[in-house]
Design a protein around this nucleic acid. Structure first.
Lengths: 189, 189, 189, 189
DNA sequence: AATGAATGAGGATTCATTCAT
DNA sequence: AATGAATGAATCCTCATTCAT
């Protein structure tokens, strides 16, 4: 018996993410993924039940990876603002260093495929939610809902990053700092 | 020569938007659109060159319709804030009253299909851009770029509306007001 | 608008029946049928919903055709025996002249695909059932069920015809006559 | 060298027969057989050369088993009629107690897969043929061919059993007796 | 203008089989 | 002997589009 080849699995995932990001869901077929991954179409079905399963696992995988990067350097002994700023920069860095994966999650999140798969319900985003709660308790953050919090922190950041990656604007460190300040003011007392 | 039938055109557009929003691009074929519009597949090609053309025209059509609604009641003699607030509420009302069209544009905007089709380059969004410029000149708005302006006004609002339409939160008039205030503070001096 | 081409329909049916008879269900794919019928695979789906639909319609079509041939020359004013003998010979002639269609129905009838599709429930076989009932009333036939009647008339005949068509035996007019007499004796008082 | 495992062989055969009977040849793949037999697909190829080999061996295996049951209690010192009646009842009992295997052989026999595999050529059915010859010599049976003999004995019986197993009729001991009498009369002087 | 028929190309998935352990 | 991984070929079917009317 052969054992499953982790390289193959990774090759399939990478190929799928890249193709989807470049050409969209509609134009990304299992055969194309297979070809890009240098694998037989049938082999994909050794690792994933079907296309939907592949897509879902892909999304979860990237989100998980992203969340790990996001929380890099964060701990609960830091002042709220320090943690927040680290996350803010981590987010920017992850997106800029992994533009394809970032674009992939954005496209995925806005498709009807995973309407029911909420951000904060994911285990690996919990630390972020807890940070927010702690900030509220410490009266650092305004008394607003998590959703409004996100709406004035990550939503603007993500929008700007998208435009940056599309080449529509340049979001350099300085612009990032400006944006950070506006966001911070918007959510703090 | 007979005239093209506006009803048919409209039926095709409506069917396409609804199907795409409900099932995604990948599951929306020309035949399905035709069937949903009570029209022959061949008929679609009387009104649109091909699928890509249909999709693009669809997007432009909805965006145009949306922009008209957005500016409803706005004129350049009003104070900046009044105009802005009207637009803010128009946006909310349009999205809530046309959830399918709103979801359609969101899905479309995040797909690679129209990466090169910028918002403010569209003729019909010009009044909004002009309002922003006027606000900056009058020192009402901070001296920030249009993109940052959007990032702290429409981006948060759209995110919250999406969650509202998905049933994840309730964005009532009161919550809308709260959000408005945060946004207004974020972009004004 | 083009109108449906009866030749195409017929070509598909003929090709399907021939392939199935020659190679069996398992080896008869839609593409092979299409190729044999000189038609695109997609064209089959203009005439039939899917493979199952094609197969069922095929079976009904052949059975109907067969029943029409069977009753050729039969009328309710004839003596029972005359009618019966005509049907007997019609059956033989049909099978010998249409060996492929005959083999097709036999293969089909013994597959689990149409377990629920009973012979005599088909409208077009009714006259045969009625002949049997009349014969019983007139005390020509024994007082047995329709199933037993079939078991000693058509079942033996079909079995022998199959062997004849397979080249295992020769069922000439004389042997047919012998068989007829045994069958007739078996079911009559 | 380890021995081949008879349990595995049996499990594969049973699974194959059941699946084919339930779903037909077309829907019975090697993987499905393997899964149903709790065995790896590759394991099947330890016991059988390929799919065709498996199917043929399956058919022969069941036929052999069946013939052994058929002749149970028969010996050449009995009167012809006694032997015949025993076989008749054995047949019925086998079919009713092994409906799946019985249905399997029927389906198989009517498919083009084994068109060339004649009944009486099989070694294990020889005693039955010999009984027939002896009956003819003793002038018990009519002077008819083996095929006609079968046509009025086993063919009717098999047809009725099939309908019985399909739930279309009830073939109880009494009906079986009636049928037996008709058959016996049909083939005896 | 409008349309159902027609189609080659391609969709997702499963096939029978072999490989490497 | 036994097996899960691996696969090219084939499965059914749908696609975007064009044709003929």
């Amino acid at each position: 018996m052969r054992h499953k080849d982790d390289n193959k699995n990774q090759a399939i995932c990478d190929a799928a993410i890249e193709l989807i990001t470049k050409n969209g869901f509609a134009d990304t077929s299992m055969s194309k993924i297979a070809k890009a991954a240098n694998v037989s179409p049938a082999t994909i079905y050794v690792y994933f039940e079907n296309k939907e399963d592949l897509l879902n696992k892909l999304y979860l995988f990237v989100k998980q990876e992203m969340s790990a990067e996001l929380l890099n350097g964060v701990n609960s002994n830091q002042p709220i603002e320090e943690s927040f700023k680290i996350i803010w920069n981590n987010f920017y860095n992850y997106a800029v260093e992994n533009p394809i994966r970032f674009a992939f999650t954005e496209q995925f999140a806005n498709s009807p495929m995973i309407a029911n798969c909420r951000w904060e319900s994911m285990e690996f985003f919990r630390p972020l939610v807890e940070l927010f709660e702690r900030g509220k308790q410490q009266k650092v953050f305004k008394d607003i809902s998590l959703e409004i919090f996100k709406a004035f922190t990550f939503a603007p950041l993500m929008g700007l990053i998208k435009e940056h990656l599309n080449g529509e604007i340049v979001l350099d460190k300085k612009a990032l700092e400006t944006t950070y300040e506006i966001a911070w003011d918007a959510i703090t007392n």
